[in-house]
């Protein structure tokens, strides 16, 4: 322990005046137009979409088999024909109506379940048990049962959509509630808030990033379940939705129409994800600095 380095030798003090900013090259200047444009997320995504469409078009043209894989332009054409001339729009609306019904009911059930879970220990156990039991169960596996219980029609589809939304939303909301910092909980109780007002005014906004994730996952699950359910038994219902549209056109070997149906599902998904949820995010978690 004796070979300690020697203390540094004495040095003179250094005192300097800061240089005036006028001598700097750049203190602050706006970014170029190109930099600002490429900083926009939607512009980059739009560029990717264009690339994907071009790849699709080129590949389909080389394949030259409209029965197996129609071109992008043929699909878009079939889409516009379907929307303006055919019944694609009404089919999509039918699907969306059922979807929103099931989605809203699922969220309502999830709200009840998570409030019970957060206010009592046995409720937490119940939620954890139910989610671990039913979350892995594919909603479509319940369809045969739903058909017996609720008959052929909207009721059965709404039931399976609720099943697909409920567990994803509950799980995320509950874990969001659990992650709310102890300080915020104490602040809420300091104001004398208890029970439902406490959940509504402290826990829900504080857990909003997780809740939003749950809502997004729930939305995607609901969409999948809906289309799958319509494919299975849209056959016998009078006014089928998009799944039925796809099924029907496949039977008639109208493959561009099948693609147009799928295309509609994708477009609605893109719009909901990139417009509805994005605006919701910008107005909440981003504005609050809870998410960058």
């Amino acid at each position: 322990m004796n070979d300690i380095a020697a203390a540094p030798a004495a040095r003179p003090e250094i005192l300097r005046e800061p240089v005036s900013t006028a001598t700097f090259g750049i203190v602050q200047k706006p970014l170029s137009f190109w930099e600002r444009v490429t900083n926009l997320g939607w512009v980059r995504k739009l560029a990717l979409l264009v690339v994907i469409a071009v790849v699709w078009e080129v590949y389909a043209r080389q394949l030259d088999n409209p029965l197996l894989f129609p071109t992008f332009s043929a699909t878009v054409l079939a889409f516009f024909h379907g929307v303006f001339g055919g019944d694609l729009f009404t089919k999509a609306m039918t699907s969306l109506r059922v979807l929103v019904m099931g989605y809203a009911a699922g969220i309502a059930c999830a709200a009840v379940l998570t409030v019970i879970a957060i206010t009592s220990r046995i409720g937490t156990d119940l939620l954890e048990l139910l989610t671990s039991m039913f979350n892995p169960l594919p909603a479509i596996a319940l369809l045969p049962l739903a058909l017996i219980w609720f008959g052929l029609g909207t009721g059965s589809i709404v039931f399976v959509i609720i099943h697909s939304v409920l567990w994803a939303v509950s799980l995320n909301t509950h874990s969001g509630f659990l992650a709310v910092s102890n300080t915020l909980r104490m602040v809420g109780r300091n104001y004398g808030l208890r029970g439902l007002p406490y959940v509504a005014r402290i826990l829900i906004p504080a857990a909003f990033p997780s809740i939003l994730t749950g809502l997004k996952i729930g939305w995607a699950f609901a969409w999948r379940t809906l289309i799958a359910a319509e494919l299975v038994f849209g056959v016998s219902s009078g006014s089928g939705g998009l799944g039925w549209f796809i099924y029907e056109n496949k039977n008639q070997l109208e493959i561009p129409n099948v693609f147009a149906g799928l295309f509609t599902v994708i477009v609605i998904g893109l719009i909901v994800e990139n417009v509805v949820f994005r605006v919701l995010e910008a107005k909440t978690v981003r504005k609050w600095g809870l998410q960058s």
Partner: peptide, 28 residues
């Protein structure tokens, strides 16, 4: 707990992030 004994905590996250400064002071 009750608002007759308001607490100021050590942690910076004691403000409600979804409310502005004004709304945070108004909230209780």
């Amino acid at each position: 707990p009750g608002p007759d004994r308001m607490m100021v905590f050590q942690e910076f996250d004691q403000l409600l992030p979804w409310r502005t400064v004004k709304e945070n002071v108004m909230f209780p």
